[in-house]
Design a protein around this nucleic acid. Sequence first.
RNA 1: CGGGAUGUGGCGCAGUUGGUUAGCGUGCUGGUCUGGGGGACCAGAGGCCGUGAGUUCGAGUCUCACCAUCCCGACCA
Length: 490
Amino acid sequence: MAKDFPTREENYSQWYNDLVIKADLAESSAVRGCMVIKPYGYSIWEKMQAALDKMFKETGHQNAYFPLFIPKSFFNREANHVEGFAKECAVVTHYRLKNSPDGKGIEVDEDAKLEEELIVRPTSETIIWDTYKKWIQSYRDLPILINQWANVVRWEMRTRLFLRTTEFLWQEGHTAHETKEEAIKETEQMLNIYAEFAENWMAIPVLKGTKSPNERFAGAIETYCIEALMQDGKALQAGTSHFLGQNFAKAFDVKFLSKENKLEYVWATSWGVSTRLMGAIIMAHSDDKGLVLPPKLAPIQVAIVPIYRKEEQLEQITEKVKPIIEALTKRGIRVKYDDRNTYKPGWKFSEYEFKGVPVRMAIGPRDLENNTVEIARRDTLEKDILQITDIDLKIEHLLEKIQDNLYQKALSFREDNTFKVDTWDEFKKVVEKGGFILAHWDGTAETEQKIKDETKATIRAIPLNEYFEEGKCILTGKPSKQRVYFAKAY
RNA sequence: CGGGAUGUGGCGCAGUUGGUUAGCGUGCUGGUCUGGGGGACCAGAGGCCGUGAGUUCGAGUCUCACCAUCCCGACCA
């Protein structure tokens, strides 16, 4: 399977591409820019979905489903929104095929042209707000707290597995509120849920902040984001939560009668994370030996490999292993007992290592004599011989330790790669090294653009309630009241 | 859409100034020995050499066109 693949040092992006394919997470498909998510990769996504879905429901949200297709006219309603998405929309123009005259193939039936073209959703604000209009008359209909799990299509010019694909899977929350305050609170709440998920489940520390106008969601008043730092020093936007103000309510004429019997526009939010999180998880933790998965999201947490020569030895081992599997399963630990005799132990070791399984347990004749097992942890590659007594407890603790270690490692990496910078020369130098740069900015879009043009670094986040201090813009020297995070980004 | 590269068994590649039977590694099938870090040997299966047109006695190899993929830019979660 994956004998030689490049180190991160040699070629980071090749390393990433090979990892995704050789760890069996996904592959590219016959359709340009679209990927097939393979069972092992999809299983990780399902774990993410389950955890997030639970968090959404715990905060009062419900799931629903809206159409894949959006009438073209809906897009015109919100000016910024159209402008933001127009360049990357797939459009359905016909609804029928016919046999071609030469009889050799099939072609679009020009007689079956749609009167109004349909846009394949790049995001669902428009169709949802058109629907909410029907649902909302009174303050008693509010709030509406809905999430949908869906696929969306954005016609990107360059794609990379998980990080940027033409079609991707995500969840999009769309909420409607009586007041501005309530909507902002919702936006912030969801940002915090994303951050909590990233840190507790994915073991990735994230910065929380808002976006500069340049980076803001098309149609939003304010975009909040979580940003993570990858091992190559580039930032990855891992989730966004938007305060939409009354922009969509006005565009789709969604009003409600308040308690004071006044007709008012509804306040809105939307928020989403996508299969891009898969890219984050891969790049944050993995090493030159392959994938490293945080235990909480690993499809297999413990792989058990029997070592034997004769059939009867395997039987003995299996008998020994049975109660271990049972005890682990009881604790909610996902175990795979790999007794395939079509592969050798060494081969299995490599495979589980490459696929990032957090803990490997090997058990052979020597262990049977001593009542032990060999435990290897993926994050540190350490091996240990443990007594079988209370092995389930020991492994449970080990998994927690691995989860924690991955987070701490990622955190100290970020700390080591975050720099306060006060001069333009230094800024240009540090940008080359990668990492986050905390620097002053004069708050204008022009300056941000210039910085981007010269260094490729953009403002990743404007910190929330942090780094308020008098300073001078890194580029223009104009006064600034707060440092912001710059980085090159995915 | 610009610049660069590549299309040859499933995957990764070699194939000389055109020359007849297109190889190698890996994977695959069967077998024997094996088994605590990707095992060894034996025997097999598997190719319209990206597509189309041309040059030639003869094309994987030369010419042209097209298609596809990858990398670098402009666009983006």
